[in-house]
Design a binder for these strands. Structure first.
Lengths: 206, 206
DNA sequence: TGGTTCACTGACCAGCCGTTCAGTGAGCTG
DNA sequence: CAGCTCACTGAACGGCTGGTCAGTGAACCA
């Protein structure tokens, strides 16, 4: 019975994961720019050089780390959007999923903040462009769902992409605020607050 | 007849302004972290040392620059909020003011993005904490206006602060998108899109 | 058990950038 | 015009950090 992964592969994967986890923790503490390779190495319990066995350079490390975490969030949201649910339920669950994700990965939210938008044009950055990855892709996906609802006449017609941005960013802001207050009021109430705003906002005018 | 400002003061003010303008341009081009003092000096047409005659260090330079620009935006928004207008008009004009400001200072919006939220906890940052200044103050001011409208029964009751955040960030996202597309569709339409969403979203339920 | 491999280590290096400060010269003053 | 002032300059400095690579030793092999 052959194992699916060789022992080496398992070890390697474990290392990569440890280092990425450490990266997230350090960035959560210090912020993007101040996170040094040395500190990440210390946090991961390895030598600095080891990191360069698994990642080409600091930029790749951060990019990969971010992509990994982002993929998790997207997977959760996509799971909701792809389900066959009534429209308003999708909105509610999308928001709830995002909220749950940020609660699970409190530390991650700073990384998210700093990477959501690119820092400058591709040309001539001190640190090579550190991706703002599937931000648009996510917005477009939501826009698609909204468009469908418009076509079915469930909500009124507006520019779906801008509406998607408005919803995404608005709800993110509230969610982040919720995390910044260390208090943790009932999640459900927050979801209802936001979903209510959005759904009333785009309801057909009589 | 004594001049209100001595010649020296005028020159000094001019220098400070040139340097701050240059700072904004460089940050707009390169992003926050990659903006070096040397390049700012070149852009302003002065020697690197000169900058240190007017600003304690790089952090103070960036902070002051940001505060200056921010004050402009706040002044415009405050002007609207303090007027004696019907509530929905205030929402519309607030959004319009923000849109106009970002249009006038396209370059500024990157600075805004990077500074909107703090990068990390005060402790042990490579660059000393580079302020996220009156973000909360602005949100609270808007929250106050919303609260008044609730008290007067014009809109339904929800947590005013979170509502304010939702509106601010949602509309900012759309405005930034508008600036990123180089196209410049009619401003009025965008204002109506957002104001419409918000106003319907918080209208009293029948 | 001696040999070989190779993941891992961490001292070291090179370059970058914020900050300083001795020097310069334009402009004022007596 | 001599002398002084002081805003301004930019070469030099020092600290920091990303990236390197010769060395180490545990694990495996023959």
């Amino acid at each position: 019975m052959l194992p699916l992964r060789s022992k080496e592969e398992v070890v390697q994967e474990f290392r990569i994961q440890s280092i990425q986890d450490a990266t997230m923790r350090v960035i959560a503490r210090k912020g993007m720019a101040a996170a040094t390779v040395q500190e990440i190495a210390d946090e991961a319990g390895v030598a600095k050089g080891t990191i360069y066995l698994y990642f080409r350079d600091r930029d790749e490390l951060i990019e990969k780390t971010f992509e990994g975490a982002m993929a998790q969030l997207m997977a959760r949201v996509d799971a909701v959007l792809d389900q066959d649910l009534p429209f308003d339920q999708k909105i509610r669950e999308t928001i709830a999923a995002k909220l749950a994700f940020f609660s699970d990965n409190r530390e991650f939210f700073r990384l998210y903040l700093t990477l959501r938008m690119p820092e400058g044009p591709a040309s001539r950055q001190r640190r090579k462009q550190t991706c703002h990855p599937q931000y648009r892709a996510r917005a477009k996906k939501l826009a698609g769902v909204l468009k469908q609802a418009m076509d079915r006449g469930e909500i009124r017609e507006v520019d779906p992409y801008r509406l998607a941005l408005f919803i995404m960013e608005g709800s993110t802001a509230v969610i982040l605020e919720r995390l910044t207050e260390d208090s943790s009021p009932a999640d459900a109430a927050d979801v209802e607050l936001m979903a209510g705003l959005v759904l009333d906002g785009i309801r057909k005018r009589e």
